[in-house]
Design a protein around this nucleic acid. Sequence first.
DNA 1: ACAGGAATAT
DNA 2: TATATTCCTG
Length: 278
Amino acid sequence: MDDLDTDVNHLQEEEEDDDDQRVSEWEAGLPNLHDLTPLTQPLIPHDLATAFSISPEPYRTILDVTRASDNTVSTLRCASCSFPPSNYSSNNAPPPPQLLADSTTIMLIDDDAVADARKSRRLDSVTEEADSALRADDSAEDQSSARALKRPRLVWTPQLHMRFVEVVSHLGLNNAVPKTIMQMMNVDGLTRENVASHLQKYRLYLKRQSGEGTVLSDQLFSSDPFPQHLRHQPPQPPVMPIGIHSSNGQPYNAFDSHHHFSMMQHQQQQRDWSSANN
DNA sequence: ACAGGAATAT
DNA sequence: TATATTCCTG
């Protein structure tokens, strides 16, 4: 009997090891963040889809992905547990019709989370359009008191910043003003103020760069009046990776660091271009 | 009134 | 520090 027991245990351990290894391999084989773009860029622009009566259903938000991922992980982790995935165990949750205030929402920093448990507005990492249905989340139990609910602080994720840089470079610094940038970025929930604030910092960064002798791309100063008709169409394919080559043969410019990066590098990158003071 | 941008606040 | 808000200007 003991023999059998140990045999079984042994076998299980082996299986677990094998699983762990396979998981590791699987994880290692996962694409990097910057290799994955489809989610943030709808294959069919919303307007077009609407015009052709294509169901907007296929749109998925980063939220959906995150939740699905969490569920998967939870399910796997709790394979032997009796608990359902944590997402649904919080309260006697009514089956979320479409979208619920999801604590797993990423890319958000809710300043008031501590003081106030209100889940209010949601901003996802990058483009998320055609989600009028999805964004019906907020008022779940919107505190009647505060009619003016605060938006959570926007976090300029690498993706968002990339989009920002793309648009700015496309417009040229002369035409790159908050409103236009905001429109061309076409990121749901992104406000002019968000962009203005970011732009201010970005300009400081550019100033510092030029002060340090870095030659900036000519494209930055080109004055392409922005096309009004593109207003509802984000610069679909990343509009132009500027700065890989500069006109005077400079091997790099200030934007090189933004062409691609992983999450791991994010903080470093942030430090690189953010601290424009001193 | 509106938008941009620097200054300032959180 | 990063982002938001205020304040002034055109």
